[in-house]
Amino acid sequence: MQPLIQTENPTPVGATTLDRLALHQAGRILALGLEGAERRRLLDLGFVPGARIEVELENPLGNPRAFRVLGGVVALRTEQAARITIALENPAS
C-alpha cells in the first residue's frame, strides 16, 4: 500500500511561494503565512504542511488558479497563493 502523501520530503530544490509555480508544476507545502480564519480555511481545504501540491488550472485571466491537493482541486487567488511557501519537487523524482 502506498500512502497518498509521503511523509518524508524529497530533497527540496529550493523554497518558493505557490504563486510562482508554473502551470502543472508541483511541490510540497512548507508553511502557511496566514493568520486566523483564513489560515483555518486553508488548512480545512487540505493546504497542510507536507502535502504535495500541483498547479492544475489557470483561469482565462490568469488569476485565480486551481491547485490539486489531497485529492481535490481548489481554486485560490494569487494574493493567497503568495502566502504559501513551497518546496519544489525534485524534478528527477
Binding site: 497518498l4 502523501i5 480545512d44 481545504l45 487540505g46 489531497l70 485529492g71 481535490g72
Partner: peptide, 9 residues
C-alpha cells in the same frame, strides 16, 4: 472516498 484523507479530519 476519493478524498479520504481530507474527509477523515
Amino acid at each position: 472516498a476519493t478524498r479520504l484523507e481530507r474527509n477523515l479530519v
